[in-house]
Design a protein around this nucleic acid. Structure first.
Lengths: 171, 171
DNA sequence: GCTGAAATTAAGACATA
DNA sequence: TATGTCTTAATTTCAGC
């Protein structure tokens, strides 16, 4: 769903073929991007060079995008996370796109979703404490033109999965 | 915010010291976990072995967690993402924790947040199409005991940042 | 805590089947 | 498309500053 990525939108007929081995490789790498080709090969029962070629191909065709390390938020002084549920007054395309682009440059913003339903935007932010959250909401969101209402939901607990499921037929 | 990680919750006095160089390394690795130590060293102007030692230390102390590759959702047949806003009837701790643990084992769930405010849970799901989304909502969420209401927000567009900001003093 | 060099291991290219 | 070999490049360790 992010912008500016290679091969983000394939024609449905152009989506590269994948088989069960490819999916196995993807599963391993989504959970640990630092696995060596040798380790992956041993896990899935293929020769390292073959495994290497498959990984290379998936990178080239845009199935595999970037890799990211996870950093412990507490180590950076992040003590609180929240979801900001935002209602906009105007749904003009240009305004909404600009809004998305603007807020993603705010350091506290981790992700921003343009959605259907009661709200128009859901924004995941990370902050130091409640004071910081209040200042952020007021200075960066309430103040923006087009914003009619913000509801702040503090995140008490979270769970994440790093492995995407497969909803297509495999070769 | 995730469970079962090393050093997830440091005492505020025990948070490891970081300096600007460490933060620079973290910034680079959050955007590209495949950077070689040599490349990082060149970028920040340090010797590779020193850089390596800093990375090793941050891994050991739990500042750096895992690494993950990003996979193009379209390559796996994922055509639609949504946020499910869920209201629960009972706020008994055990029930809520169990609920979180249960839904994170549903393949379509990417992340689940326990939050304050109008809803109790916000769940990010990935599906093939709208039919799939309907089935998922009914079969996996509406059906669960304790769920009183679900609002489905389809995600039209999204932006993400992979770099966490720093809200603490540095050595 | 930083450096530079040495040893170990991995990545990436290629010829072959 | 899979494999084994080979070359290049990286990681990781360590003695010295």
């Amino acid at each position: 769903m992010d912008k500016d990525r290679p091969n983000e939108s394939w024609d449905i007929a152009q989506v590269p073929d994948l088989d069960r081995i490819d999916v196995g490789i993807l599963r391993l790498l989504q959970n640990n991007a630092r696995l060596s080709v040798k380790e992956i090969a041993a896990e899935i029962g293929l020769a390292p060079s073959t495994t290497h070629e498959r990984v290379r191909r998936m990178r080239e065709t845009g199935i595999l995008w970037g890799t990211h390390v996870e950093v412990n938020p507490k180590a950076l002084g992040i003590g609180l996370e929240a979801l900001l549920m935002i209602e906009l007054s105007k749904h003009n395309r240009g305004i909404v796109d600009q809004f998305l682009d603007d807020i993603v440059s705010v350091p506290e913003v981790r992700s921003a979703f343009l959605v259907s339903g009661r709200y128009d935007l859901v924004v995941h932010v990370v902050v130091h404490d409640t004071q910081h959250l209040k200042d952020l909401a007021l200075d960066q969101f309430t103040i923006r033109p087009g914003v009619t209402r913000i509801e702040t939901s503090i995140i008490f607990d979270a769970r994440r999965r790093y492995e995407l499921p497969v909803f297509r037929s495999l070769r």
